[in-house]
Nucleic acid binder design. Structure first.
Lengths: 207, 207, 207, 207
DNA sequence: TATGAATGAGAATTCATTCAT
DNA sequence: GATGAATGAATTCTCATTCAT
């Protein structure tokens, strides 16, 4: 299951005109959906939600337009699925850190978080394009943010068992703010230096 | 999305023969242009550049589609005009602060800047929609940013004549960053408190 | 005004997604709408509502597809306008009979009604294609039927002033049934003879 | 409307090599075919031939689209099968009347015919949707009509052995016309009364 | 045989832009 | 200048039919 919205089945009667993403039932379909989401992610990040055509998405995914519509009857549904996938990927990445021995101490955690954020940077750019830029309280944004705060707080607690929950939570907020700066690191020579600064700030925030 | 004509000249510097926004000759025309720009600003902020149709703009402005094209022969020209107006409004607002006795001291300046930014918030949202979100070095963004930095530096210099230019410039950068936070203030009860915090941070940055 | 549905203006806010036929505001537009309706009538009668493509309608009317959509954003709206036009044409034709001296006696009225029905035969075929064939109580059918009954009763009353209203009404029902048979007259040699029979039956029903 | 493949072979008599509806081999298959035909009948009656999609039929029948095409490789074939089934059902129903003791007299026959027609009403609505509404001489319509006329004449002859064949045939024509009125009986309170009137007219026609 | 994914031609629809009045 | 109709390329979306598993 790659999406909770899609896991609700087709057979369900629903007010006509409220289309729904169809969940693939075969391995082939599951792979196709992934490919489509990947293509959409790149294009949405490049041209925005409205600036991306369904045709372009299908083409980039190497699928026929019909195949695209088979799984995503509207662009919005595709956007929703993409957001959910991003949410899930972030959650999974944080879960992986939680299981990682190397993250049981502040320095390791700081490094792990940074690496994770860099890996998710492209996907985040896509997700950001699907959100109302002018409304910082977009429910989707809040949802992801809260999920991240909670899990990062847990990670900090794990790395410093002496800390009480409230303090960990407070530090998680700060850490998350710092982590966002990853997405603004330039691609240039001094990126490494800046990243090092960031890593140390993060470590300071966690400890 | 549907613009065949535009795809030929996107982002390109106007070659000779490419239409320019026509300047209105009379007061009546100036009024209409303002109305059109206002309508466009709202819609761009709401639905983005690609998500806004020329028809919708004309309709919201209470003008005919022909009238809209009278002044803005191209959607891009409309976007340009909007950006320019925003740039001009910001410059004018900062000029007004420069002339304002109350801004001759740090506290007054901090308050004045905050008020100004709040007043321009809606217009800024529209201008932001016209810019490549993924490219922090979009020339238009840089242009506005530099203009603001320069003028804010001058304002800080004015408020603290003892400061040397380089220091004022450095503080202007910081002040500008803080001022951007205005756009993220929630509309809720605690907005006033947050704004107070912001004002004090700003004051600290200026002094 | 060629359509009551269309006379309700555009400026009215309505739930997005409930499109409306746009009323033409210029002579040219009015003519175009008529041409479009004519083309649609022929094609609907030939291939039914679902069997007729918008492209075919525009093509037959010698208009661009965009022109068609300018006035009729959906096929259903076109169908509605067509039905209304048919209703109006029938009403007008009956009004004309009411003003016609020759219809002040039963024989003249019978002849007049027959001629009228033959003239409207093609348009009726189109209107019939737009109606739920399986539901004899389709509101649109009832509406036209009642309008016709009422006016034919009035015509019968006019032709035979001695008749009381109730009797005239009863005879109108019968006359209408007979008139419907016009649409089933074959195009062949014996059509004239059959029509004569029909005319006499009609006369008998009226008197 | 979207059928490129079908436009090449519409209404054409099947040349060799054109697929036919595949006959099911087992009981299970026969059941499924019936279910599919039932679903198609309902949808055709509701939305017409062109308004009904193969997907919708399969879905309503609880079958996969592949399964539908297993038995009906073409929409036209499905329509044909539906018409044939209707024809067969009518014939079987009339045969049953012929074997029914109660129909050996005029009154019993009239009642039996009425009941039969009411039972077939829904199926007839579907069959009607598959036929060119504007062409009263559609071969399929004629075929069913002639079959009915012949068998009803036989039934009348059976109920009144004294009648000569020509007279029975003439009365059968009239009876059939009257029977068609069944499909226009309203569903309301006075339906029973109207049906009684119809039954008596029918009886009069038969005798 | 059953199932669902794949395909793509074709139909529906939108909208930037041009033009005649 | 103002207005609304006209245009058609680009896009969205649908669905009959085919295929692989």
């Amino acid at each position: 299951m790659y999406s909770s919205a899609m896991s609700k089945q087709n057979q369900v009667r629903r007010p006509a005109g409220v289309p729904m993403a169809r969940a693939p039932k075969r391995e082939r379909g599951r792979q196709r959906v992934e490919t489509l989401l990947d293509a959409a992610a790149v294009l949405f990040a490049e041209n925005g939600l409205e600036g991306t055509t369904m045709t372009a998405i299908a083409q980039r995914a190497g699928a026929s337009i019909g195949s695209l519509y088979q799984f995503f009857p509207t662009r919005q549904l595709l956007a929703d699925a993409l957001r959910e996938r991003f949410h899930r990927h972030v959650a999974e990445a944080l879960d992986r850190l939680a299981r990682d021995e190397a993250c049981r101490n502040p320095a390791g955690l700081a490094a792990g978080l940074l690496t994770m954020m860099k890996a998710l940077s492209a996907e985040r750019a896509a997700a950001l394009a699907l959100v109302d830029q002018n409304d910082p309280r977009d429910p989707h944004r809040l949802q992801v943010r809260n999920m991240m705060r909670t899990r990062i707080a847990a990670l900090i607690g794990q790395a410093q068992p002496a800390l009480d929950a409230a303090t960990a939570a407070r530090r998680a907020v700060l850490a998350l703010h710092l982590l966002k700066l990853v997405h603004q690191l330039p691609d240039e020579d001094d990126a490494a230096a800046l990243e090092e600064v960031l890593r140390q700030s993060l470590l300071a925030a966690i400890e």
